[in-house]
């Protein structure tokens, strides 16, 4: 069903490489995966458009410089670490400008606040949406359709099988395999 052989590069090992000896591809992945999200976050916090990219760049540079110090304490740890870096940079920016941020940056820096949870949620959904886009090409269209109908559309395996023109068994396998691939892609990055 899969068109390509498994080439799963778990995100945890990617984080490890980023810390140890990042290649250009690892760095690119960081920029691709997090750049738009960080820019959106910065926008929400009130960072003017002119400064967002500088801020994103600063945050990513810090991630690269300090990822060695980052200890992977389970799912979501990277996300929380990133959120704190963003909060700190945004705070520094607004302090320097002597203007107020649009959000409570102290809340953003703590894990147990409504704001932090909302942003974590967005982080996860963003990465999930991105992972879905990334892996879709690895699966045959019928497989993908069967997976999508079940997981996103909330259909039963039987309905998905009928819609995709697959056997029931193939529809079950489709869901199982795509989810497995997505888990590998998202491993350690989302909760």
């Amino acid at each position: 069903m899969r068109r390509k052989g498994p080439q799963v590069d778990t995100s945890v090992s990617w984080l490890g490489r980023l810390a140890a000896s990042p290649t250009a591809a690892d760095w690119q992945r960081l920029v691709d995966a997090y750049g738009p999200l960080l820019a959106a976050w910065a926008g929400r916090a009130g960072v003017p458009a002119a400064d967002r990219d500088d801020l994103v760049q600063e945050v990513l540079v810090v991630v690269v410089r300090r990822v060695g110090e980052f200890e992977h304490r389970g799912p979501g740890a990277f996300r929380a670490w990133l959120r704190c870096i963003v909060a700190n940079h945004v705070r520094a920016l607004f302090r320097a400008r002597r203007v107020a941020a649009w959000v409570d940056l102290d809340q953003l820096g703590r894990d147990d606040t409504t704001l932090a949870r909302a942003w974590d949620r967005e982080h996860d959904e963003y990465l999930a949406a991105r992972a879905v886009r990334l892996v879709q090409g690895d699966f045959a269209p019928a497989t993908w359709l069967a997976f999508h109908r079940q997981v996103v559309g909330g259909r039963s395996a039987g309905e998905a099988a009928a819609e995709a023109g697959l056997s029931l068994n193939a529809a079950i396998l489709a869901k199982s395999r795509v989810l497995k691939r997505l888990q590998a892609e998202l491993c350690g990055l989302v909760e």
Binding site: D124, E125, Y126, A128, A129, V132, H148, V151, V152, G154, L179, L182, Q183, L186, V190, E191
Partner: peptide, 10 residues
């Protein structure tokens, strides 16, 4: 959680 997340993201 992943399925819920994907459903939301989708």
């Amino acid at each position: 959680t992943l399925v819920a997340l994907l459903a939301a993201a989708g």
